[in-house]
Design a binder for these strands. Sequence first.
DNA 1: CGGACTTTGTGCATTCATTCACAATCGACG
DNA 2: CGTCGATTGTGAATGAATGCACAAAGTCCG
Lengths: 244, 244
Amino acid sequence: MSSAAEFPGSEAEPGNLADRPYPGGIPDATVARLPVYLRALYALAERGVTTVASDELARSAGVNSAKLRKDLSHLGSYGIRGVGYDVEYLVYQVSRALGLTQRWPVVIIGAGNLGRALANYGGFLNRGFRIEAVLDSDPSLVGRKLGSVIVRHVSELEALVAEHGIAIGVIAVPAGAAQAMCDRLVATGVTSILNFAPLVLNVPGGVDVRKVDLSIELQILAFHAQRRSTARFVQATDRAAAEA
Amino acid sequence: MSSAAEFPGSEAEPGNLADRPYPGGIPDATVARLPVYLRALYALAERGVTTVASDELARSAGVNSAKLRKDLSHLGSYGIRGVGYDVEYLVYQVSRALGLTQRWPVVIIGAGNLGRALANYGGFLNRGFRIEAVLDSDPSLVGRKLGSVIVRHVSELEALVAEHGIAIGVIAVPAGAAQAMCDRLVATGVTSILNFAPLVLNVPGGVDVRKVDLSIELQILAFHAQRRSTARFVQATDRAAAEA
DNA sequence: CGGACTTTGTGCATTCATTCACAATCGACG
DNA sequence: CGTCGATTGTGAATGAATGCACAAAGTCCG
Ligand SMILES: NC(=O)c1ccc[n+]([C@@H]2O[C@H](COP(=O)([O-])OP(=O)(O)OC[C@H]3O[C@@H](n4cnc5c(N)ncnc54)[C@H](O)[C@@H]3O)[C@@H](O)[C@H]2O)c1
Ligand SMILES: NC(=O)c1ccc[n+]([C@@H]2O[C@H](COP(=O)([O-])OP(=O)(O)OC[C@H]3O[C@@H](n4cnc5c(N)ncnc54)[C@H](O)[C@@H]3O)[C@@H](O)[C@H]2O)c1
């Protein structure tokens, strides 16, 4: 992969774009899509594609191509007009924008059904993240091997965070214990939290919480399903009303 | 743009609100928050609270109170000025808006780490959903009991969907098999899909796909974590530059 | 070397979402 | 029964996101 020097951006005098790549900040909506683009780019790279136009990349990412180009334009001007984007170079730029040039140490709290699935899952370890520890309060789980790590007791949380410089905590404990675990994470200096427990976590400013909530997703699906199934009925009602 | 049918008797008759509760449709952003409100309401109800003001409910849901009120106003006018909302009644109204007065039959495809965690999880079964079947292609998993159901072979998909009137499919198979499973679900008439596999599913119009993607969430966290950690550096750099 | 062709990057209009701020409306209470 | 404090519901202002459409900028080929 090597040097970026031969690509636009480095030579074409955009000021000190190299020093501070994303001056105006990247919109949240864009940040949320960058990982999708990144995945599509990896898939292309694996198929041996070296260059891709916004149109095709947008299709694999499931978005409008103008949106894709505008998103990428927030990172800099890395395309070549008339040609498209160099896949490998764009992978690098998107990774850099997302902060994936370093590998982030992660702790998972809770080794139940979900925590085990997460710890066993190799998918997000590959790129950008490493699970440094899995913790549980249940003594019968401590010592068990999950994926590549051994379950430790939750009392070791603070020590492990300090030792491994952990920046991201994943909460996979029952809802009743989640806020307390969150508080401990925050007190230890963790400022990025991924929450699976079904409640709204309370955190001070400067701490970033994202949630993954299956029930919510299902309920949103149910809403649309209901809307679709009543659409026919409403149409019929409308016709009846129009005749009256 | 042209279709006048989109604005159904807009100013003519506000009277039939009861007949068609949500005339203009509920904004997506609102739909996505209703489940959060619902959860907060259940928590209040369990604590014995019978009435709640938008301010407090908004706090437990982690949103601005004006936003909460506007969201709820899309369902109808169910508050009492000077008092607040009746918790039990609002639970009913939000449930109804989300389509949770019926119980939705769900099929989970894939009984691996994740599928097992989902099937064992009682959380979203309580309200609004029931797992009717868990399917896998691995014969050694077929017959195993997960939660309250027994794993069946994936070849039974079409029959089970028809038999149980399944409307929602959950995809928890490896990425390589996800699109094929999705196609089969769609062909069988399932129009609501929750996808855990890390790829963008391709579906025809009228089919609703939502995704849960842990890698994406972690990457978004990484972005903000990086931004926070470079903020100090940039500030220092700025001062240095200002002095030069 | 020049012109046809392709594709990016972005200005602009439009739509969607958030937040503010307050009149309208309610129960409570004297 | 009228006043008062509380709270809703919503116009209007602001801000964010989307998608169109096209000039600018490149490639490619004859
Ligand atoms: N399993 C799923 O599919 C699923 C789906 C949606 C949401 N969730 C949510 O994810 C969370 C975990 O779910 P699960 O199915 O793994 O639950 P689980 O009960 O299987 O596991 C929870 C684990 O957390 C441990 N634990 C409890 N208190 C703890 C504490 N204070 N510190 C450390 N560990 C503690 C328990 O010992 C247990 O091992 C829950 O909040 C659940 O609501 C799970
Ligand atoms: N486990 C996690 O924490 C996690 C996290 C993020 C994403 N995911 C994604 O969720 C999906 C499932 O993850 P997992 O950890 O459970 O994987 P897994 O390998 O443990 O399980 C996959 C299961 O699907 C079955 N399967 C394969 N092809 C099938 C087919 N055509 N029809 C039916 N079943 C089939 C396999 O037999 C296996 O039991 C994957 O796409 C994965 O990328 C998982």
